[in-house]
Write a protein that binds this DNA or RNA. Structure first.
Lengths: 189, 189
DNA sequence: CGAGGCCTTGACCGCGGTCAATGCCCGTGG
DNA sequence: CCACGGGCATTGACCGCGGTCAAGGCCTCG
């Protein structure tokens, strides 16, 4: 049941079996129903999640009440409201299960304990941060350069899963366009 | 002459004098004229820069030939085309001196050597990545939620230096609005 | 002194957002 | 099992933000 998580960790760093056990002992499983929130605006992000089955999304709500999705995490991916996790300040972002899901979490304290206990964990965190940075920067560049249609095209190419699996509402929120515009785009393609 | 750099490093991590010397030995100074490029599109980002005097900017050019600035680094700040530095792939981004500048650089290889040699350097990199991530994510959120006027207002509050010191062209590029729009905004405030 | 770059201002217009109406699908309870 | 209600998707009408194009003035540097 922890297999996916083990595979993921081993794909990033080299650790002994003992170390692996220590690492795993910090992760706890949780089951989630669709739409359940793991973190809301104003709370401090104290946990990082690994998705076993289902899907989580990280999003925030603008002053006008629209939601904007920053990230979807499917099976085998990590996710958290990273800014708040790093700064320990109240989070702008929400974390929500998009479908019924089974996830594992490690607490912020646990995560930082591991940085002290397991030398390789620092490398794990490095890789996590690097990935998060690259993903986010690419996303920033897309928003600065692409119009609605181009954003949708890019999504179709680079993340067809998202389009296949999620509702228009979710997709529109991820592309930061209105549902109506997305609907019109789809009918034209 | 290396004082600023020393202060910066000491503010981030605790190192012995010997370690500090090792670290500094990896940094080389360069003088730059205004508009000089340190990296252009298609090259791999092999260096990270620390600004002693002057200002660097990181930007990229869209298909329509507009430039969009991702980051300004003033005195006492680090800067690089981080995505390319991390991935070792050709950079989308350019690095340019906005003014006559004096900077120090460390090469990608040097940087990774230090990760092996100086245990604390891993922590330095961690802090660097965390900052870069937080900055970029906040920026992404601004672009998703604010209109032109609000972006300008936010800039005035959070980075008045940029407004005071740089040309309208630079500011507009940073806010990702046209020079004309910025000009109209300024006249209204 | 001339040329080129930057800033400003006006005219125009297109992308994409909002509002509203309608249809569809699905889950829930009588 | 069917009826109803609520959420999601589609489509049309409208319009405003901000971009482009163009002209004119100013400053700087060679």
């Amino acid at each position: 049941m922890y297999d996916q998580l083990v595979d993921y960790i081993k794909s990033k760093i080299t650790v002994s079996e003992q170390e692996l056990e220590v690492i795993l002992s910090y992760f706890k499983p949780v089951k989630l129903k669709k739409n359940e929130l793991l973190l809301t605006h104003g709370q401090t992000s104290q946990r990082t999640f690994f998705v076993g089955t289902g899907c989580l999304r990280i999003f925030f709500i603008t002053e006008e009440g629209q939601d904007a999705t920053r990230y979807f995490a499917f099976e085998g991916q990590f996710a958290t409201a990273l800014v708040s996790f790093i700064t320990s300040e109240p989070s702008e972002e929400f974390i929500q299960a998009v479908e019924d899901s089974e996830v594992f979490y490690i607490t912020h304290n646990g995560f930082y304990d591991l940085l002290e206990i397991i030398p390789q964990w620092e490398k794990f965190y490095r890789s996590y941060l690097e990935n998060a940075y690259v993903t986010n920067t690419r996303r920033l560049m897309s928003f600065l350069t692409l119009d609605a249609k181009e954003k949708y095209r890019q999504l179709l190419e680079e993340n067809p899963d998202i389009v296949r699996r999620l509702s228009n509402k979710m997709i529109a929120s991820y592309l930061n366009i209105s549902q109506e515009t997305l609907s019109r785009l789809k009918s034209k393609i």
